[in-house]
């Protein structure tokens, strides 16, 4: 262990601000990237469901028309 106490670890020998800023922004950037990917997938999922429902509605309508005709 390179540090004696929690305080030493956070302080990073006086460079704490820089080290934790670098790590924090890295984590933030990667999190945004991952979240963006997950959100895109969710949107695509909704889109797919909508399309499928529309197709099913169309099919049902066609069937009904055929039934009434």
């Amino acid at each position: 262990m390179a540090f004696d106490s929690w305080y030493d670890f956070i302080d990073m020998g006086g460079y704490g601000f820089y080290v934790w800023l670098a790590y924090g922004v890295t984590l933030l950037a990667l999190t945004i990237l991952v979240m963006h990917g997950l959100r895109t997938r969710k949107q695509l999922q909704q889109q797919a469901v909508q399309q499928q429902q529309r197709q099913q509605r169309l099919a049902r309508r066609k069937q009904q028309e055929r039934g009434t005709a």
Partner: peptide, 21 residues
Amino acid sequence: GMLFAPSDYQQGDSYRIIFIH
């Protein structure tokens, strides 16, 4: 890198950015 690697004799602990940079 953050906890167990020794600190650098020139740059102190600021060198720990290397593990992501």
